[in-house]
Design a binder for these strands. Structure first.
Lengths: 345, 345
DNA sequence: CTGTTAGCGCCTTCAG
DNA sequence: CTGAAGGCGCTAACAG
C-alpha cells in the first residue's frame, strides 16, 4: 500500500491538516515543522491520492479529450498540441475516441463524468444538443471543428474559406477543370470544404464541379485517383485532406501520370509529411497543434473561474508547393525534371 | 451538481446499499426494487463518481500511458492500438509524454500515482531502476521497447534482427556500400538497429560501415541525405526509421538523385505513409498498433489477478518495395520509369 | 500557528 | 433480500 497523508503526519509528528497545508502551500506553517513534513513526505515517497483529492476538492485536474478518429498525422499533431498545453498547466489528459456514432459518443462522454473537469470534443457528426444531454451541464465543454452555433465555445478552422482560397488559387494558376475529392458523408468539415470549392468555381463561368467520393483515408484517395484516370484527368485535383491527396498521388504514380506536369494536386491540412512528398504538396495550412493548445487553454480559463472563452475561427493559409506549379523552372544543375529529361534524350 | 447514489436511493425509495448492489450487479436484488432503482438512476442521469469509486474500490479502471514523444505516425498508430484495447476492456486511457529526460519521466510517473491501475511506459532512455523508484512497487508496469532485462514485462521489437535482415537484404540485392542514418544518441532502439546493421556488414568482408547521425526526425534525415550527396553517395541508404528515410528522399529529390536508380533507400517501422511515398519505401515492418494493444492486455491480465504476462519480442518483417529494387522491370503500359524514359528519348 | 473533525460519494461488511 | 454504518484519503472549516 502507498503512504497516505496519515503516515506522513505521524512520521513528522504533526496532524494531517498540517501536512495538507504544507503540501498545498496555501496556509502558513512555521519553518521547523514545515521542513519536517517535507522530509517525511519525501522519505515515504508520498503522493496524494488523486481519487480522494478529487472527492474533496471537487476537481480532478484532468481534461477529457474525445476525438473522432486516431488515424494519421492530423490527430497526432492535435494530441501533441493538447498534451503540451495540459502539461504546461499541470493538468492530466484523458483520451478517448468516439468514431462518429452518436450513441457511442454519448456513452464515452458519460463514462468521463467525474473523471474530468472539462472536455474537449471533436465531433464532426454529432450535434451539440446530444453532447449537452450527455454531460453534466456544469462541465465546461470546448468543441473542436465546424458546426452550428451553440452555447459552448467552438474552435474551428475556416474550412470553407480555405477551400475557396485553394480553388481560387488553382483557377488563377490557369487550371480550368478542377476535380474535388470529398470527405465523408455527413462530416461537417468535409461539407464546408466542398462548399468552398463549389463557391469558388461559381465565380468563374464555364467551370464545372466534378466531385469524387472519399472518406479522408489514403485508400479512398487512391480509389479517387484511379477513377479520375479511368474517366479522364482534369487539370487539377483538390483533395479534401492531405491523406487523400497522398492516395491520389500514388494512383497517379502507378499510372505514370506526372504531377504537376499532367495534373496538379492539392490537399488540405498541411500535415507534417506534406512537404516531404514528391512533389511537395500544395495544401491548405492549418495550425493543428495550435488549435489543440488553444482548446486546453480555453478549458483552463473556464476552470479558473473566468468567462468561457470566445468561439474562434482559425484562418488557414495557402501553402503553395511544387504539386501545383504549372510552369516549372528550368531545372538547376543536378536537378531533374522528368518531362525535359525525356525530350532531351 | 450531479446526482449521487443518495439521490437515486431516495428517488427509488431504497437504501444506497441497494442502489450500489443493482448497479454493480453482484448481489441479488429482487425484481420489483431492482427495476425501480434502474429507472431512478436512468431518469436522474446518474453516473457513479469515479473519484469516490476509486477511493473505496482501490482501483481507477484507468491505464496510464507514457510515451517519449508524440510526433509522427508511429505514435499515432501506437496510441490507436492502445486506445482500441482500453476501450474494449472498459478502461480509460491517461496519456502523457516524457520527452526522454529521466527526471521529467519520474515526475510524470509520480503524477500518475493513484490515478491509474497500471502503466504502459515507453522509455528509450531511462532505465528500469529509475522507473521502479518512481512508482508504487505494486503498480503493474509494462515496458515498451528494447532495454535490459528486469522484473517487468517488456514488449519490444527485434530491432537488431530487423536491421540485420534489412542490411542483409540490401547486400544480397547487390548493394555493396550501405550507409546508415542512425537514431538519437542513447536511444536503445536506435542502438540496436545500428548493431544489426553493423553485424550484417561484418558478415561480408570488404564492406565498411558508414554511419551518419540522426534523431529520428525528418529534418535529420534531410540533413543526412544532403551530407551523403556532398560526401559521395553510397549504393544504398538504410535509415533507422521511416521518418528519416522520408527526409533522405527529399534530399535526394532536391539534388536530382534518383531512388532507387542512383541510390537505394530503406527505412524502419513501416508507418502507414511508407507505401505511399515515391518510390514506395522498403522498410522493416513493425506491428505498431498490435504492440500497443498487447501492452494493454498485459496490464489487464495482471489487474485481473493473473500472472504478469511474459516479456515478448515481436519479430519485424521485411517489407520490400520499390525504393530498393535495383533491377526494375520493364514498365507496363502506362507506367513510367524515369531512367528508361531518358534512355528511350 | 496547529490539531480536530466533518464530510466528499461510494462500496461493503454486518445485522436484521 | 435490504438497511445501517464504517471507512477509503484528503481538504476545509472551526477550535484551541
Amino acid at each position: 500500500m502507498n503512504a497516505t497523508i496519515r503516515d506522513v503526519a505521524s512520521a513528522a509528528e504533526v496532524s494531517v491538516a498540517t501536512v495538507s497545508r504544507v503540501l498545498n502551500g496555501s496556509d502558513k506553517v512555521v519553518e521547523p515543522t514545515r521542513s519536517r513534513v517535507l522530509a517525511a513526505a519525501t522519505s515515504l515517497g508520498y503522493v496524494p491520492h488523486s481519487g480522494a483529492r478529487s472527492l474533496s476538492m471537487q476537481r480532478t485536474d484532468t481534461i477529457g479529450v474525445i476525438l473522432p478518429d486516431l488515424h494519421g498525422e492530423f490527430f497526432s499533431e492535435l494530441i501533441r498540441g493538447i498534451d503540451a498545453a495540459t502539461r504546461a498547466r499541470g493538468l492530466h489528459l484523458l483520451l478517448s475516441h468516439s468514431h462518429g456514432d452518436p450513441d457511442e459518443a454519448a456513452a464515452v462522454l458519460r463514462a468521463m463524468r467525474g473523471r474530468v473537469d472539462a472536455l474537449v470534443v471533436m465531433s464532426p457528426y454529432a450535434d451539440e444538443a446530444m453532447l449537452s444531454a450527455s454531460i453534466s451541464g456544469s462541465t465546461p465543454l470546448v468543441l473542436l471543428g465546424s458546426g452550428g452555433a451553440g452555447r459552448h465555445p467552438r474552435l474551428a478552422i475556416d474550412n470553407r474559406g480555405g477551400a475557396f482560397a485553394m480553388t481560387e488559387h488553382l483557377l488563377e494558376a490557369g487550371y480550368r477543370s478542377i476535380a474535388f475529392v470529398a470527405g465523408p458523408q455527413g462530416n461537417i468539415e468535409a461539407a464546408r470544404r466542398l462548399e468552398g470549392y463549389r463557391a469558388a468555381l461559381a465565380t468563374r463561368p464555364g467551370t464545372e464541379a466534378r466531385i469524387l467520393p472519399g472518406d479522408f483515408g489514403e485508400e479512398s484517395g487512391l480509389a479517387a485517383g484511379r477513377l479520375l484516370i479511368a474517366q479522364g484527368l482534369p487539370d487539377a485535383v483538390f483533395a479534401a485532406n492531405d491523406m487523400m491527396a497522398i492516395g491520389c498521388l500514388q494512383a497517379f504514380r502507378e499510372a505514370g501520370v506526372d504531377v504537376p506536369g499532367d495534373v496538379a494536386l492539392a490537399g488540405f491540412d498541411d500535415i507534417p509529411v506534406a512537404r516531404f512528398l514528391d512533389p511537395p504538396l500544395t495544401t491548405v495550412g492549418v495550425p493543428i497543434a495550435e488549435i489543440g493548445r488553444h482548446a486546453v487553454e480555453c478549458c483552463a480559463e473556464i476552470l479558473a473561474g473566468g468567462e468561457a472563452c470566445a468561439s474562434r475561427t482559425f484562418a488557414p493559409d495557402l501553402v503553395v508547393r511544387a504539386s501545383t506549379k504549372l510552369n516549372k523552372k528550368k531545372p538547376a544543375p543536378g536537378r531533374r525534371n522528368r518531362k525535359e529529361a525525356s525530350h532531351e534524350g
